Simulated assay, not measured.
Amino acid sequence: MPLFHIGLIVNPLAGVGGPAGFKGSDGMAEAALAAGVEPRAAERTRTALEVLLPLRERLLFRTFAGAMGAELLTEMGFAHEVLGISAGAVSHASDTRLAVQRLQEAGVALLLFAGGDGTARDVAEAVSEGQPVLGIPAGVKIQSGVYAISPRAAGELTRRLVEGGLVRLASGEVRDLDEAALRDGRVASRWFGELTVPQEGGYLQQVKQGGVESEELVLADLAAWLEADWQPGVRYVFGPGSTLHGLAQNLGLETTLLGVDVVEDGRVIAHDVSEAELFALVAGTPSYLLVTAIGGQGHIIGRGNQQISPRVLRSIGLERLRVVATKRKLSTLEGRPLLVDSGEIVLDDAFPDAVRVWTGYKEELLYPLSR
């Protein structure tokens, strides 16, 4: 089974200001350490990672040297790659930002980071839009909505993703208090951006508690979301299959059930295209690719949609791939990953370890992918 790639960044000094009574650690870490405060971020991270120990053989972490992650991963026996080292003896915000950049470039499916609101701000400054991240709470103050409710909860949510559970993606706010004002007795919180974070997703049996999921209603919801989000001048490639055909019908579009069609500005501009025709339509033109999974099997590329060739995929960009599937269809996989078989091993390896799946109105799940 292929390894699941996770990024890990630990802010070793997160939380040290709290026990010292500094209301935070920003700019006060050295003073807190001088006062005898013991850093706790590593132990908080250890608590999260302990949940993943039974899956150790399935994981490969990417991290920075020493206290930023590698030291703890070595102690716990997790396989990992070290992609950098902090610039000084004590890590700084610039080290966190650099680590975010390098871990993303290495293609992690999820970026775990341990810290507080200051760390979340550093992550937000460097992270690419749409990169799933999850905070392990280790700071003094946690105003941001990008942290799990506890270190163990962060581990449980990550475990669910690795094991193929449905994990919904949402937008979480990054907020931070003005610590100088806080020390003067004033509470001032500011918004610093948003991050894409996983939340606990619903398994099919949870959906059934409120009634059986209706595919017709789900497709209507997805159509409403897509219609509200059309980008002018952008081409949307609809892959084959009843899910995408039903989505198109809800948009008032006549597409081919088993073919590939191209939509632009709310109308079909090409029906049942060949690979060569599709490449000519997307080369040099901003495009999105919509595909679905084969029920019970899980292939999204390479089965019944060979028109979507490696050069088409490269032209569109893997970051513009969107999988459309109901929770019911995903449940038929019974936790098995989605699959790609583009015909080129190098391209297959470039796919992320987890992809975004549209499952309802403004609802996305993060789901594992394999080759």
Score class of each variant (00 low, 15 high):
residue 279 F to Q: 13
residue 133 V to I: 04
residue 174 V to T: 03
residue 141 K to H: 04
residue 75 E to N: 00
residue 350 A to H: 08
residue 212 V to P: 00
residue 185 G to L: 11
residue 350 A to C: 03
residue 255 T to M: 06
residue 150 S to F: 07
residue 246 G to P: 10
residue 282 V to W: 04
residue 310 P to G: 04
residue 3 L to F: 14
residue 261 D to P: 05
residue 296 G to H: 10
residue 330 L to M: 09
residue 37 V to T: 08
residue 342 S to H: 04
residue 18 G to E: 09
residue 369 L to C: 07
residue 321 L to R: 09
residue 80 H to I: 01
residue 244 L to E: 05
residue 35 A to L: 12
residue 350 A to F: 01
residue 222 L to Q: 12
residue 54 P to Q: 10
residue 207 V to S: 05
residue 62 R to L: 11
residue 335 G to R: 12
residue 335 G to V: 10
residue 84 G to W: 02
residue 285 T to C: 05
residue 68 M to S: 05
residue 343 G to F: 04
residue 335 G to F: 12
residue 10 V to T: 13
residue 205 Q to M: 07
residue 232 P to W: 01
residue 61 F to A: 00
residue 127 V to E: 03
residue 178 D to N: 15
residue 345 I to R: 15
residue 190 R to N: 09
residue 249 Q to W: 06
residue 241 G to C: 03
residue 95 D to E: 06
residue 128 S to P: 00
residue 318 L to M: 03
residue 217 L to K: 15
residue 174 V to N: 01
residue 144 S to L: 06
residue 67 A to E: 15
residue 304 G to D: 07
residue 59 L to A: 08
residue 202 G to Y: 13
residue 281 L to N: 08
residue 52 L to S: 06
residue 326 T to G: 10
residue 155 G to R: 02
residue 52 L to D: 05
residue 299 H to A: 08
residue 223 A to N: 06
residue 328 R to A: 15
residue 254 E to M: 07
residue 339 L to N: 00
residue 331 S to N: 15
residue 312 V to R: 05
residue 312 V to E: 10
residue 175 R to D: 11
residue 259 G to I: 07
residue 72 L to R: 05
residue 360 G to M: 00
residue 126 A to S: 11
residue 164 G to Q: 08
residue 6 I to C: 06
residue 205 Q to A: 11
residue 114 A to L: 04
residue 31 A to R: 14
residue 22 F to I: 00
residue 232 P to Q: 13
residue 219 L to F: 13
residue 193 G to F: 09
residue 169 L to E: 10
residue 251 L to R: 00
residue 157 L to V: 08
residue 309 S to Y: 01
residue 14 A to T: 08
residue 245 H to D: 11
residue 353 D to Q: 03
residue 341 D to T: 00
residue 62 R to T: 03
residue 203 Y to S: 12
residue 119 T to K: 02
residue 173 E to C: 01
residue 220 A to G: 11
residue 347 L to W: 11
residue 303 R to Q: 11
residue 188 A to E: 15
residue 96 T to I: 14
residue 118 G to H: 04
residue 70 A to D: 13
residue 217 L to I: 09
residue 206 Q to H: 15
residue 148 A to F: 03
residue 160 R to I: 00
residue 223 A to V: 04
residue 185 G to F: 14
residue 156 E to D: 10
residue 27 G to D: 10
residue 218 V to C: 09
residue 298 G to V: 03
residue 177 L to M: 13
residue 9 I to W: 09
residue 199 Q to S: 10
residue 240 P to W: 04
